[in-house]
């Protein structure tokens, strides 16, 4: 019967079975080999050198949220790529930034974008922001086997909640554990330094422009102390990717806009290499 339906070119039964609005569920039942989590890894000796993406930061401001990432991918002590893109739109009102194994992470983002789009087309409505965050959680959990073998993917998810009318940030661990972050968050190897910087710079009442500047400052500080995080490359004109999500939707800062902010920060850092100072008390 199965052979027959294939030979006629007819859509297989799995395509016409009503029920799930999830592309992941469909893949799981129809073509599980295409799911990243469905693969088994051969046993490996020692660490495998594969490109890793590094630092992602996010901060909310009244009316939206900023999500930004540096551009470096490292492979051991080698810079694997200096212009990698690690922040992607997930749909019109959300974005995802990824740290960890670059290849897997890009695949996961592609699947996550498709999952949201698929749901939207089948249902004729978009998922709630929490719903999207939960789907991402499921995907990361599916990757746990690989994470334990060193191929971890740790994203940061940010979006504008159209019901609550504010920007929100969700962070994850390798087991898919999700927690909402209030104010600001960071992930990846440089996240410790970035979070420290943001802690001193962040205020609840930042404007969009100030929030953008603050996250770029944080990335600058991360690159200052973490060798796996890339600072702005003024010579090659490679700047961090900065995205802003407001009630108007997702927007990625243009090259010129990003360059202006980076140059302004760089100019100030020529006088004060450690960046802006917070008061002691």
């Amino acid at each position: 019967m199965e052979a027959n339906t294939r030979s006629t070119g007819r859509l297989p039964a799995a395509f016409l079975t009503p029920g799930s609005s999830s592309f992941l569920d469909f893949l799981g039942s129809h073509a599980p080999e295409l799911l990243p989590g469905g693969r088994s890894l051969p046993p490996v000796q020692g660490a495998v050198e594969i490109p890793h993406g590094t630092t992602i930061v996010a901060a909310t401001f009244p009316g939206g949220v900023v999500l930004a990432g540096d551009r470096r991918a490292t492979m051991g002590n080698v810079i694997a790529q200096r212009d990698i893109e690690k922040v992607f739109p997930a749909d019109e009102f959300s974005a995802v930034g990824i740290a960890g194994t670059a290849g897997l992470a890009v695949e996961m983002v592609k699947l996550f974008q498709l999952e949201l789009e698929h749901y939207e087309k089948i249902e004729g409505a978009t998922l709630s922001l929490e719903g999207k965050a939960n789907r991402l959680s499921t995907m990361i959990r599916g990757n746990l086997g690989m994470a334990l073998q060193g191929l971890a993917v740790v994203p940061l998810f940010a979006g504008y909640d159209t019901d609550r009318e504010r920007g929100r940030i969700f962070s994850y661990d390798v087991t898919g554990g999700r927690s909402e972050e209030h104010g600001f968050a960071a992930t990846g190897s440089g996240s410790v330094f970035a979070r420290g910087a943001l802690k001193k710079l962040y205020r609840k009442d930042l404007t969009e422009q100030q929030a953008v500047t603050a996250v770029v400052q944080a990335l600058y500080d991360a690159a200052d102390d973490d060798s796996a995080t890339g600072g702005p490359d003024l010579a090659r004109r490679i700047y961090p990717i900065v995205t802003v999500i407001t009630e108007d939707g997702f927007r990625r800062l243009g090259d010129e806009e990003g360059a202006d902010i980076v140059r302004a920060i760089h100019e100030r850092r020529l006088q004060e290499p450690d960046g802006p100072r917070a008061s002691v008390l």
């Binding site: 395509f15 893949l27 789009e117």
Partner: peptide, 18 residues
């Protein structure tokens, strides 16, 4: 036709993904 539509979306998304 709703079934065919869903089948079509799945076909298109799977093809675009592969």
């Amino acid at each position: 036709f709703e079934n065919l539509r869903i089948g079509g979306v799945r076909y298109a998304d799977l093809r675009g993904y592969t």
